[in-house]
Simulated assay, not measured.
Amino acid sequence: MITAALVFGPSKLTITSKIGAVYGYSLLWVVIVAIFFMAIFTSMSTRIGVATDQSLLASVKQKWGKGASIAMGIGVFLVSTSFQAGNSIGVGIAVGELYHTSPVPWIIFFNAIGISLLFFRSFYSVLERTMILLIFVKLFSFVTTFFWAKPDIGQILKGYTTPSIPEGSQGLIIAFIASCFSIVGALYQSYLIQERIRVRPELKNSKNDSTTGIILLGCMCSIVIICAAAILHPKGIAVNSATDMAKALEPIFGESASTLFLVGLFGAAFSSLIGNASVGGTLLGDALGLGSNFSSKSVKYLVALVMVVGASIAIKFGKLPLELIVFAQSVTIFIVPFIGTALYMVGNDKNIMGDKVNSTPVKIFGALGLIIIFSLAIINFKELFFNNPLFH
C-alpha cells in the first residue's frame, strides 16, 4: 500500500491525465504492462526483505563491496531530493486552488506536518495508516469522477485488449512505463517489509503479499486515463498538469467535480511527499552506516532533510527548475539499471534467499523487466544528452 501511494504522485497524475486527454482509451494496455513488471520486482523485493535480517544495501555490499552500496544509497537520495520539490508544489497547488490562495503557506504547512510525523514513537505505523488513508482518498476522488464521466465500456475493453501505438505517443508511453514501473519504489519495498516485521515480529512467518497495493496502483492509473478519455479527449482539451485536469472538469460538471479531483491531487502529492522523502533518507542512512530503520534518529533527520530541501526549492522557484529535472534524470538513468540488476541478482542468490529464491518464471519475467529498464535508460540517455537544448 505504501509503495503504491508513494509511486502514484503528481507526475503520475499528470502523465495519466495527458494520456487519456490526447489518445483516449487507446493506451490502457500500457497500464497492464507496467503494472505486471512492477508487481514482479515488488514481490521480489518483498521476499528479499523477509528472507534476510540484513538490509538490501547490506546484501549488495556483501556481493559487490562497500562502493556499490554507497553509490546506490547516494544515487537514490539525490533522485528523491531532486523530485521532492514536485511533490511539495503538488501539495501547495492542490490546496491553494481549493481555497484560492498562494501555494506557499500550504507547502510550508504540509511539510511541517510530514516532518512532525517522523517523530511519532512508531513512525512506520503512522506512515502505514496515513498512506492507506490517502490511497482511499485518491480512489474515492477518482472513482466518483469515473461515474460522473460515464465512459464507453466497449472502448475501455478495446483499450486493454488491443495494443496500439498512436502516432506521437511514444514519449508518453516511455514516461508512463518509466514512472509506473518504479525500480526505486520496488527497492524500498524490502525496507518497508523489514520495518513492518520489526514493529510486528509475528508477521515474519505470515504471507507478506505486495500484489494488492500494486493492483490498486494500476486501478488508479486506469481510472484517471479513462476519466480524461471520456471527458477531455472528445473536446480536444489538452492537459499539461494535473491542475489542468481539475480546471477542465469544472465547466462540464461544475465546481464540485474539480474540487473532488483536487482532493485526489492532494492525496497523490502528500503521499509522495512523505513516501519519497522516506526512501531518500532511509537509503542514504543505510549507505552511510547510520541505520536502515525508522527507529534511527539519523534516518529521521535525513528524511526531514529531503523534505526541507524539496520545500525550499518549491518556494523559491514555484516549479521544478529545468536544470534540476535534467540532473535528476541523469542520475536516474545511471542508477535505475544498477538497482534493477542488484535486485534481480540478490533475488537469484540462494545463499541469501534460501527457500525464497526467485522461481524460474520470476527469473524469466525479471530478465524481461531488466531488458525494459535498460532499453528505457538508453532511450532516455539519447533524449537527455543528444536532443536536449541545454546540451547544445
Results as ranks from 00 to 15, higher is better:
Tyr301Met: 14
Leu262Lys: 10
Lys382Asn: 12
Lys382His: 12
Ser278Trp: 14
Val331His: 14
Pro251Tyr: 11
Met245Gln: 02
Phe327Tyr: 12
Pro337Trp: 13
Gly366Ser: 08
Gly369Thr: 09
Tyr344Trp: 08
Gly281Arg: 04
Asn380Thr: 13
Leu305Glu: 00
Leu320Glu: 04
Val357Trp: 09
Ser256Trp: 14
Met353Tyr: 14
Asn293Gly: 14
Lys356Cys: 00
Asn276Asp: 10
Ala304His: 10
Thr332Asn: 15
Thr259Gly: 05
Asn348Glu: 06
Ile352Leu: 11
Ala367Asn: 11
Phe266Ala: 01
Ser298Asn: 12
Pro321Tyr: 15
Gly310Tyr: 02
Ile339Pro: 06
Ser256Ile: 03
Leu368Trp: 11
Gly291Asn: 04
Pro337Arg: 13
Ser278Lys: 11
Ser375Glu: 04
Gly264Tyr: 10
Ile325Asp: 08
Ser258Met: 07
Gly354Val: 14
Glu383Leu: 12
Leu265His: 04
Gly267His: 13
Met353Val: 12
Ser375Pro: 03
Ser256Gln: 06
Ser295Phe: 15
Leu368Thr: 07
Ile352Cys: 01
Leu288Gln: 06
Gly354Ser: 14
Leu305Ser: 02
Gly275Arg: 08
Phe270Val: 09
Lys316Trp: 15
Ser272Gln: 13
Phe327Pro: 00
Ile372Gly: 10
Ser330Met: 05
Ile352Asn: 02
Ala314Asn: 01
Gly347Pro: 04
Phe365Val: 03
Phe266Gly: 05
Gly281Thr: 02
Ala277Cys: 04
Thr282Glu: 01
Ser330Val: 02
Ala304Asp: 08
Ala248Met: 06
